[in-house]
Simulated assay, not measured.
Amino acid sequence: MTELIDRFGRKHTYLRISVTDRCNLRCLYCMPEEGMKFMEQDRLLSYSQIVEVAAAAVRLGMRKFRITGGEPLVRPGLEQLIAGIAALPGVDDISLTTNGLLLKQQAFKLKEAGLKRVNISLDTMDDVRFKFIARRGELKRVWEGIEAAVEAGLGPIKLNCVLLKGVNEDEIGRFLKLSMERPIHVRFIEYMPIGHDDAGWRSHYLPLSAVLEEARRLGYVLQQEEGPQGSGPSENWRIAGGVGSFGLIHPISEHFCKSCNRLRLTADGHIKPCLYWMDELSVRPALGSLEAMERLFLKAMDVKPENHEMAAVLAGTPLSHEPTERRMSQIGG
């Protein structure tokens, strides 16, 4: 079997699939407060087309799939896509990244369709601050979604917390306490300049060394560990005696490109070899031909760069490639 191995020897087994660029929140690090011009619905790949792309990926050794957005749960009938991918021979894992607002209503049918686990975005545990960061929605509904995921067996449950200097770094201790008291994996994520490199990003960027510093200030004894299923590039820790754990995803301060094993499929049908760079390959010309789709994936291996150079953005030094103009919600996180 032909495998997806790039020029730098990295074997790719993981495809992140965005199903929409629409979202029911307007998080300040993801899109402008006024929103964006969203894709026309006829630009989106259909579920059957996405399954066709996934089938080619499986034939090339991809075993792990994650559904993303925008907010994937705003697209109707998502369980149909999950079931279609789950039916492909060789698929080991299907997961979902969501803001949790609609998860209470959908958790059980997604589990029945074949979804294994969820990552839920949660940047604050304060109601007022939630309104400031997300600009809409209710924190209560996110907690209801988390509880529904637990009841449906969509575990391990992971909470994705983007740390923003001057906004939520004072809650690091609360999230660490949560990881100690509940069987939840909290993942602290560095703010990335995807689709925008401006003074706002630079002023809010916070290296994740702040998390370990706060944990030690609080007197926690830390134990480094492998982490739960699907931890990927996360650096994983557990507070001694804790029920859950926490992880650090620091693409900028300690970027993890050397072990990257993923590609991305955008909602409008482009394979992105790297999250940060402009390079994209349209799957539409290959639809209807499994062999042509496989060739497209192999081409992605030829053009994938060695790293994303986001640290160079922070330092203000020249870049070797053209950064993407798409926002994170338009790519799929």
Rank of each mutant, 00 (worst) to 15 (best):
residue 33 E to T: 12
residue 256 F to M: 14
residue 320 S to R: 14
residue 212 L to W: 12
residue 67 I to T: 03
residue 107 A to F: 03
residue 60 L to A: 04
residue 271 I to R: 04
residue 6 D to L: 08
residue 276 Y to W: 07
residue 101 L to F: 05
residue 89 P to H: 13
residue 102 L to S: 11
residue 159 L to W: 01
residue 237 W to L: 07
residue 221 V to D: 12
residue 167 V to K: 02
residue 238 R to H: 08
residue 14 Y to H: 11
residue 299 K to Q: 15
residue 245 S to W: 03
residue 86 A to N: 14
residue 287 L to V: 09
residue 103 L to H: 08
residue 189 I to D: 02
residue 103 L to C: 11
residue 206 L to R: 05
residue 58 V to Y: 02
residue 312 A to Y: 07
residue 162 V to I: 13
residue 303 V to H: 09
residue 83 A to P: 13
residue 60 L to H: 04
residue 271 I to A: 05
residue 184 I to H: 05
residue 197 D to L: 01
residue 48 S to Q: 02
residue 212 L to A: 08
residue 184 I to S: 06
residue 87 A to C: 14
residue 65 F to Q: 10
residue 127 D to W: 00
residue 330 Q to E: 15
residue 11 K to F: 10
residue 320 S to K: 14
residue 313 V to Y: 00
residue 237 W to I: 08
residue 262 R to H: 10
residue 331 I to R: 01
residue 164 L to T: 10
residue 279 D to Q: 13
residue 2 T to C: 04
residue 97 T to D: 05
residue 1 M to R: 10
residue 289 S to A: 05
residue 103 L to K: 07
residue 57 A to N: 07
residue 200 G to I: 12
residue 291 E to G: 04
residue 233 P to F: 11
residue 290 L to T: 09
residue 316 G to S: 05
residue 230 G to W: 15
residue 209 S to H: 11
residue 114 G to K: 07
residue 21 D to Y: 06
residue 128 V to D: 09
residue 247 G to R: 04
residue 46 S to C: 00
residue 58 V to W: 02
residue 317 T to A: 05
residue 270 H to Y: 14
residue 3 E to N: 10
residue 226 E to G: 11
residue 118 V to F: 03
residue 39 M to D: 14
residue 92 D to L: 12
residue 250 H to T: 15
residue 197 D to Q: 05
